[in-house]
Design a protein around this nucleic acid. Structure first.
Lengths: 231, 231
DNA sequence: TTAATTGTTCTCTCATTGTTCACAGGCAGA
DNA sequence: TCTGCCTGTGAACAATGAGAGAACAATTAA
């Protein structure tokens, strides 16, 4: 799950937090890992974040938080050892013991409009904000889209749902992404790579997968959460 | 998670609360941190609030509350016992005061456990709290359940989703409800009345609708919203 | 009502910290 | 070999953290 360096950094952060309660700065992490540039640290931090081991507030100094321990925990298993693998993310929601569930663990993310409406989402910037429990998101930058259409019904994504999207340019096979097609149309689909080609696969037998060249598709984010309202 | 100053201030507030039970004023915190202006304190307080370590009532003097301890806890367990988690949220809701719900439109609702697990949900009272955007809920009392199983997949409700339930005894035909069957088992299903009988209809062709007598079923709430998290 | 206490904001200023880029080497698998 | 991934470096740049001082607003006590 982790590379040697990522693991080393995670350990360091953990020790620091337990000893002093103060997050290390990038500079300090740089020293600890014996690097000569902070950008390396930056990449490691991003990797740890992406894998769900830490959480952070963007653009805030010393704002790291450990969500999960590496598998081989040798030093201090006690408190967290009981957490079954895979459930870690949700553990944050369920464990009142360790985290008393802060009342304002809420993030406001911008609501950019409807998706699958044939308009690049960037065009609809800066409308209303949607408050979302931080536990639903990882960290990183997020935004929300209202889902339009039924092309993802079989993935449990219905017309009118709010999709919470984490902004990213990269995605792995099988993930649900917001893809901008030929700079024109944004859609929410499963992503599949087929050699150099990219396939956008709907979750609805009534629709066909579409195949595009690598230059025709731009990933704008991946699905991180979903909100639905019943009336 | 914290910078040196933030940590120092949090410690100070904590000690003060434990010793005297009275929140320090900005002036006192200013002195304690050896500052010459209160605005610095203000910024630190905001940072602590943003990170979920403290909570405060806006425009109220000496209204600080510690929600979370820094990792390196050296002196603590006392403070914790005095402030049961969750209590604060309810207090905030009940106070007919000027500030019904501090600033944001977020409501904390209790997470009662998993549904369709064969256990009456009432038995699982008082676990953790889940912050939810108020916009997702209507009025009334709500709680959350984690969905277990795939009996409602065709309604876009997947295993592991969080169902937001509005507590009510009544429901109309065709609504999705939490139904307690024979006082034993709680399930999430479509409700249909058939004369005096009540039918619970799953949204999955692999399952059969179940028919019960009016005395066998107790409606505990209706589905008001849904949260899902992708990893 | 007045006065005292306390919290909120603003503007400046400087230091600290985080972000991003371009460029490059090493390594494993196709 | 080519490609993708991890790693390393350096530097420019952007943003936040922190402190001061003052005016102002809100709440509480007299």
């Amino acid at each position: 799950m982790l590379t040697r360096k990522q693991h080393e950094l995670l350990k360091f952060i953990q020790v620091r937090l337990e000893e002093s309660g103060i997050s290390p700065s990038f500079e300090e992490m740089k020293e600890a890992l014996d690097l000569k540039s902070k950008s390396g640290v930056h990449r490691l931090i991003s990797a740890l974040e992406e894998r769900g081991f830490i959480r952070r507030l963007p653009n805030r100094a010393r704002a790291l938080e450990i969500l999960r321990q590496p598998e081989d925990v040798t030093s201090k298993p006690a408190a967290k050892a009981a957490v079954p693998a895979g459930q870690d993310a949700l553990a944050a929601l369920k464990q009142p013991e360790r985290t008393p569930e802060p009342a304002n663990d809420v993030i406001e993310i911008p609501l950019h409009g409807r998706i699958a409406a044939g308009v690049p989402i960037e065009a609809l910037e800066g409308q209303s904000m949607l408050p979302v429990p931080a536990a639903l998101l990882g960290s990183g930058e997020h935004y929300a889209l209202e889902v339009s259409g039924d092309s993802m019904v079989e993935a449990g994504i219905l017309d009118g749902d709010f999709a919470l999207i984490r902004r990213t340019n990269t995605a792995r096979d099988g993930e649900i992404v917001v893809a901008l097609v030929r700079g024109e149309e944004a859609t929410l689909k499963y992503l599949q790579r087929d050699g150099a080609m990219v396939r956008l696969v709907p979750a609805n037998a009534a629709y066909e997968p579409q195949v595009y060249g690598p230059d025709e598709i731009e990933v704008q984010g991946k699905l991180a959460g979903l909100l639905r309202r019943y009336h």
